[in-house]
Computed example of a mutant assay.
Amino acid sequence: MKKEKCESLEQARAYIDELDQALIEIIATRQFYIDQAVRFKRTAEDVQSPERVQQVIHKVREKAKVLHTDPDLVEKIYREMIQHFIQRELKEIRP
């Protein structure tokens, strides 16, 4: 993603607003694919998959480091998002 130096607070806020829109769209797309994945899961253990959670956390922490952003923040955001999606998936597989 291209980064540009801002000439004003208003310009910085406009870029932030654009990024917020993009982030929400990306989260919605991620949710779409999680909803697809749940069709292939049969049990609560399949949904919760601690090994997969750790893989994802490790991967995003490493990407955060490469991009010089706080890996602790990225991990916190991902853990919250993953927990939300796990709860959503559990509702789908449980009668």
Rank of each mutant, 00 (worst) to 15 (best):
P50I: 04
V74G: 01
E51D: 12
P50Y: 03
V60M: 07
E62V: 12
L73E: 08
S49A: 13
H58Q: 14
H58C: 11
R61S: 15
K63N: 11
P71H: 04
V53A: 10
R52K: 15
K59W: 13
L67T: 03
R61N: 11
K63A: 14
E75H: 01
V66S: 08
V74F: 00
V56Q: 07
V74D: 00
E51S: 09
I57E: 01
H68D: 13
Q54S: 14
I57S: 00
V66R: 14
A64V: 02
H58F: 14
Y78R: 00
Y78N: 06
K65D: 11
R61W: 06
A64T: 03
Y78Q: 04
K59C: 14
R52Q: 12
P50W: 02
V66M: 11
Y78H: 07
K65H: 05
E75K: 03
V60L: 09
V56L: 14
V60N: 05
D72L: 10
R52G: 09
E62G: 15
V74P: 00
R61M: 14
D70G: 06
H68V: 06
V66C: 05
K63M: 13
I57R: 00
I77T: 06
I77F: 06
E51I: 09
V53D: 06
V53Q: 07
Y78P: 00
K65N: 08
L73M: 13
I57V: 11
Q55C: 11
E62W: 08
D72Q: 11
S49Y: 08
H58P: 02
L67D: 03
V53Y: 03
P50C: 02
L67P: 01
T69L: 11
L73G: 05
I57L: 11
H58M: 12
K76A: 10
I77L: 11
E75G: 00
L73N: 08
Q54R: 13
Q54L: 12
Q55A: 12
S49T: 05
S49H: 12
K63D: 06
L73P: 02
E62L: 15
E75D: 02
P50G: 00
T69K: 14
S49G: 09
H68M: 10
L73Y: 09
L67I: 01
H68N: 14
K59H: 15
E51N: 07
E75W: 00
K76I: 02
V74N: 01
D72C: 06
E62M: 14
R61K: 15
S49Q: 07
R61T: 09
V56K: 03
L67M: 09
H58S: 15
R52V: 11
H68S: 13
V53E: 09
E51K: 10
P71Q: 02
P50T: 04
R52D: 10
E62F: 12
P71C: 04
H58V: 07
I57W: 02
K59T: 15
P50D: 06
L67F: 08
